[in-house]
């Protein structure tokens, strides 16, 4: 009965060899982590200039000079820019720079220089319209993309007894909806915007549509997964009362999905605020337009101010979103 240590070790080894494992997952993980960390070995870094490396355009880094607030710059004897601090001038410069985005409560800019519209408000407006449109787009796709509803797995046997043709059609519709959602979400909003801008020209609609398609795809996926995770036994009792399949789905599932729907809605809205800004790079008038413009003209002092302004609304959106999500359900893990 009693085994000696060597025998035990043999037993342990054979147990370890026969341990259940998921090779696909193991390999996938190993490959993923390996490539993430290993890619650094292949990075072509010139150790003398670790960051600049092989620059394709040899730019003299004038960043620090140009990052000095314009009104505080003075040339020294050598002809280089030097920062000369003056609190009053600094605030005046800051106020006027901010005012150029349309945020000018103190009328710092003369009327003819004042921009027509407030870039921060535009950014928020774009993000709101985008997320509303995204939610509207996702709504008709949620149930057809939820396996348990689309393929009738969650319904009573009587309801599942459909013709072979309907079953085939349902399978096709399910696959098509899933595919549509994958395409919608896997293409970045920026690329969508780029395509629409070529097609429509520089109008806000292009940006809204781009954000809406990408986020609609994500919302559709998250919400349909939520429906798939639902225990629909209680819901399907409704169909025993004679309700049709569609009304069961709408009445029984809609209200139960609502809290999670809102959580995802606000989560994606936060992302929308962040992404709206970069559409400015494509000449859609959000705060990012001012950032891109300042960079293009090497006005790094103004670029930094605009970036910080953008940070403020992104963080603001974050706080609002987090607070709302926490209210909806205690806590808000986004790792969906």
């Amino acid at each position: 009965m009693a085994m000696n240590p060597a025998e035990r070790w043999q037993a342990v080894r054979s147990l370890r060899r026969d341990a259940p494992r998921d090779r696909f997952l193991q390999m996938g993980l190993l490959l993923f982590v390996g490539l993430c960390l290993g890619s650094w070995l292949f990075l072509d870094v010139d150790l003398r200039h670790p960051i600049t490396g092989k620059s394709r355009f040899a730019v003299k880094p004038t960043f620090l000079d140009d990052a000095i607030p314009f009104d505080l710059r003075h040339r020294d004897e050598a002809g280089d820019w030097r920062l000369v601090w003056d609190t009053g001038l600094f605030w005046r410069w800051l106020g006027r720079t901010v005012a150029e985005t349309g945020l000018d409560p103190f009328d710092l800019l003369p009327a003819e220089e004042r921009p027509r519209s407030n870039a921060l408000a535009d950014t928020l407006a774009l993000s709101v319209l985008a997320i509303v449109l995204a939610a509207l787009m996702s709504l008709p796709l949620i149930l057809p993309a939820a396996k348990n509803v689309a393929l009738l797995e969650a319904f009573l046997p009587a309801d599942r007894d459909v013709s072979r043709l309907e079953r085939t059609l349902r399978r096709l519709a399910f696959a098509a909806t899933r595919g549509l959602l994958v395409v919608m979400r896997s293409i970045p909003e920026f690329i969508w915007a780029f395509v629409f801008l070529i097609a429509f020209g520089p109008v806000a609609l292009a940006g809204i549509l781009a954000l809406a398609i990408h986020n609609g795809g994500i919302l559709g996926k998250l919400d349909s997964e939520c429906v798939e995770d639902m225990d629909l036994r209680a819901t399907r009792a409704l169909s025993a009362l004679g309700a049709s399949k569609n009304s069961v789905a709408l009445v029984g599932i809609g209200p139960r999905l609502m809290p999670q729907f809102l959580v995802y809605f606000f989560y994606r809205w936060e992302t929308c605020v962040r992404e709206t800004a970069i559409l400015g790079v494509l000449a859609i008038r959000s705060i990012g337009f001012h950032i891109d413009h300042a960079f293009a003209q090497f006005q790094y002092d103004r670029a930094i101010v605009f970036i910080l302004m953008n940070s403020l609304i992104v963080i603001g959106g974050d706080l609002v979103g987090t607070a709302v999500r926490r209210r909806i359900r205690g806590g808000g893990n986004l790792a969906a």
Binding site: A11, V12, L15, R16, D18, A19, P20
Partner: peptide, 8 residues
């Protein structure tokens, strides 16, 4: 329970 040593 030795046979379950490497079970999850």
């Amino acid at each position: 329970l030795t046979e379950k040593m490497y079970e999850r």
